[in-house]
Nucleic acid binder design. Structure first.
Length: 441
DNA sequence: AAAAAAT
């Protein structure tokens, strides 16, 4: 991979960068003859009673999601590497003086005005000479479009070698970001994109002629011997302390955009918990909620692959059509499942932390933590919590997050998450159908 | 515990 200059974008970097520095891979591939989608009974004619339940469910959902949209007065900390240089922020894409094909691509995607993070980050990313950036912005606020725009503005399509590298923590996110690159770059017909993901091997001595390489850590390391003369752009919704220190160590002389702690959560996402005493009760509570969560689309997170496949099978047995996605499946299946979910062919996706970060499916209005996110020591995983609930409430939309609590221990975890973000998570009782009716009306 | 590379 010979090149004179580089742009490197790292998305959700706490995961991607950490895995680069800690690559101990023990892969067990599990064979499966399903494509990850579990289907059951085709929907029969609905009875009056079912129609009534549907209306109650819709009403409940509206009630739960309803909240005042807060204005966008973000408390952001912006640090420039050269404090004396003036601080630019742009209010329109025209001000950036992009190549016409690129501006056309931006508008074709339906963006009219830059989002908050784009206003601040774009001038820094496009500055000459190139400057590095470490940037934080809430989930669903346009980080991907920001760094994709920066990458595309640096690409010289006439030159046939890789000029940008984009690193993602998971296969699905790499595919998703690749799609954004293709959409925004569609008026550069010569532009080529290569995926450095599991299964795509580079033959010895094989030259890469694509302009942009996007991939996951292991394969990307395999492809690249070294990176030099490289502008680095790191984006994430969260920067846990140790990651923050690490980011500053590996990115020389960066500009910085950082959120204050109290600004990390989105008030547009209403958070609840459901109190149960064991897994079976959680399952029952989930079934009670099912009508409400399938009004639009929902993602259900489990702690392990095993729980996820168990839950998907149980829901399926109850007659619900759900999709299952976890890292034990083969990549072809994973691509097919996420594609079907995007198209709305399944309304519910049961998954693991593989889908916690970055996945952007606009129709997802509910996130359910069937298991609360905990780290390897059993402590609350606040970052993952924020990423998971951030699968809803994207780009200013409202969203609902429901946490299933099944013990004193998990209640304690939830309380600690609540304290960490200083954000009230309210009790929701799904066992009491009367009460649900009351909330719904 | 999940995810991320091939050996």
């Amino acid at each position: 991979m010979a090149s004179d200059s580089w742009a490197l974008a790292v998305d959700q970097q706490e995961a991607a960068v950490k895995s680069i520095s800690n690559l101990q891979i023990k892969e067990e591939r599990v064979k499966s003859d399903t494509n990850g989608v579990i289907k059951t009974n085709a929907t029969a004619e609905k009875t009056d009673e079912e129609e009534k339940e549907d209306r109650a469910a819709q009403s409940l959902l509206n009630k739960l999601i309803r909240s005042n949209l807060v204005d966008n007065t973000n408390q952001v900390e912006v640090l420039q590497r050269d404090p004396k240089s003036p601080l630019y922020s742009v209010k329109s894409f025209e001000e950036l003086r992009l190549k016409p094909q690129l501006l056309q691509g931006v508008y074709a995607m339906g963006f009219n005005r830059p989002s908050k993070i784009q206003e601040n980050a774009l001038p820094m990313m496009l500055a000459e000479p190139p400057q590095n950036l470490i940037a934080q912005s809430q989930s669903g606020t346009g980080k991907t479009a920001a760094f994709v725009l920066a990458m595309l503005s640096r690409v010289e399509p006439a030159e046939r070698y890789p000029q940008c590298l984009c690193l993602s923590p998971t296969y699905e996110l790499a595919l998703q970001t690749g799609k954004v690159i293709e959409q925004m770059g569609k008026f550069h017909p010569e532009l080529k994109l290569a995926y450095a993901v599991r299964g795509n091997k580079l033959e010895r001595g094989q030259k890469i002629s694509e302009h942009i390489v996007i991939g996951t850590p292991g394969t990307v390391l395999d492809w690249c011997a070294k990176l030099k003369n490289c502008q680095m752009l790191l984006f994430s919704a969260t920067f846990e302390d140790s990651v923050w220190k690490f980011a500053q160590k590996v990115v020389p002389d960066p500009n910085i955009i950082k959120l204050k702690r109290e600004e990390e959560t989105l008030d547009t996402i209403k958070q609840y918990y459901v109190l149960c005493s064991n897994r079976d009760e959680k399952f029952q509570a989930l079934c009670n909620l099912y009508g409400a969560i399938t009004i639009a689309q929902a993602m259900i997170f489990c702690h392990t692959r095993k729980t996820a496949s168990w839950l998907a099978a149980e829901l399926s047995r109850e007659g619900h059509q759900v999709a299952l996605l976890s890292g034990e499946m083969m990549v072809e299946q994973r691509a097919a499942v996420i594609e079907r979910f995007r198209e709305g062919k399944e309304k519910v996706l049961v998954t693991t932390n593989v889908c916690a970060r970055g996945i952007d499916v606009e129709q997802v209005s509910v996130v359910i933590n069937f298991d609360l996110p905990v780290d390897k020591d059993g402590n609350p995983d606040n970052e993952t919590y924020l990423h998971r609930i951030g699968r809803t409430g994207r780009f200013g939309k409202r969203g609902l997050a429901v946490n299933m609590v099944d013990s004193k221990h998990s209640m304690n975890i939830l309380n600690r998450i609540q304290e960490h973000f200083n954000k009230k998570i309210e009790r929701l009782d799904t066992d009491d159908l009367d009460e649900i009716e009351k909330i719904a009306n």
